[in-house]
């Protein structure tokens, strides 16, 4: 079993003559870097969440038409943004993996998927709880809601497929294809409220026009959006570390890491 996998392991490491930025693309350098960075992102996420919640509940005023139920927006919109953004990042890493044949890229996209699925579920759940008191229904099959549900299924499909296929190289490729194909759904979600008649309202915050929100409301939403970025970075880095150990278990450096871990208990 050893000879084939050792070849692959060597291929994962960029040549030592490559540019120095690529040094962190080598698993043995990325592993400790991820371990050092993750706690900082976690602390940032926690602090931003506290500030964001304070803005959301104590600074932002009640909404003129919806009353206090609009406060769901402070998690609904950041979660929906994150669920779309993470999928695009997964597609990006999958494309990099397919083109450059760097296996760490596939591992990155697989480490992102559960967090993306989590945010996707949160967006759907909070949307349902927001829809009932405002629209009068928990769920409708309009283009926005349907395409967001499709995104959740794409996440589930990606996770199931990459875990189900025994051979990691084949699993990587199959997952990468789902990530790339499914990425088409992301602009569909985003523009669905423009392209079709939907019950869901249009975007309050976009790059092309001034936000249609009071500034303190907007502030709370943006702070929580940054909190979810930091959270995603922290949890993904934590998740990718054991995945790297698993993939690189034949190498010397993982042996050394495991000895340290074993000795620590």
């Amino acid at each position: 079993m050893a000879s084939g996998s050792i070849d692959q392991d060597n291929r994962m490491n960029p040549s030592p003559r490559g540019p120095s930025v690529l040094r962190f693309a080598a698993p043995q350098n990325f592993y400790p870097l991820a371990g050092r960075l993750a706690p900082w992102f976690a602390v940032t996420a926690a602090v931003l969440t506290l500030i964001g919640l304070w803005l959301a509940f104590f600074v932002a005023p009640v909404d003129a038409t919806q009353g206090n139920v609009y406060r769901v927006i402070f998690i609904h919109v950041p979660a929906a943004w994150m669920s779309m953004f993470i999928y695009l990042v997964m597609a990006f890493w999958s494309a990099v993996g397919l083109v450059m044949n760097t296996r760490l890229s596939f591992v990155m996209s697989q480490a992102l998927a559960p967090t993306g699925a989590m945010f996707c579920f949160v967006a759907l759940w909070t949307g349902a709880l927001w829809g009932r008191p405002t629209w009068g229904a928990y769920w409708v099959w309009d283009a926005r809601l349907t395409s967001q549900l499709l995104l959740l299924f794409l996440y589930f499909g990606f996770i199931a497929l990459t875990r189900a296929i025994e051979d990691p190289r084949r699993g990587d490729r199959a997952g990468a294809i789902i990530a790339l194909v499914g990425a088409v759904n992301v602009p569909v979600i985003y523009f669905s409220v423009k392209w079709w008649n939907t019950l869901h309202q249009g975007a309050s915050v976009s790059l092309t026009k001034a936000p249609s929100m009071a500034s303190t409301m907007l502030m709370g939403m943006l702070v929580l959006a940054f909190a979810s970025w930091a959270y995603t970075l922290a949890v993904t880095l934590w998740r990718v570390r054991p995945m790297i150990l698993e993939r690189e278990r034949h190498t010397e450096w993982v042996g050394a890491v495991l000895d340290r871990e074993g000795g620590r208990k």
Partner: peptide, 18 residues
């Protein structure tokens, strides 16, 4: 048989709406 309310994407405090 079913009536749904469709609201817009504007969020503002009551004073601003007034």
């Amino acid at each position: 048989t079913e009536v749904l309310a469709k609201h817009d994407e504007n969020y503002m405090p009551p004073e601003a709406a007034h």
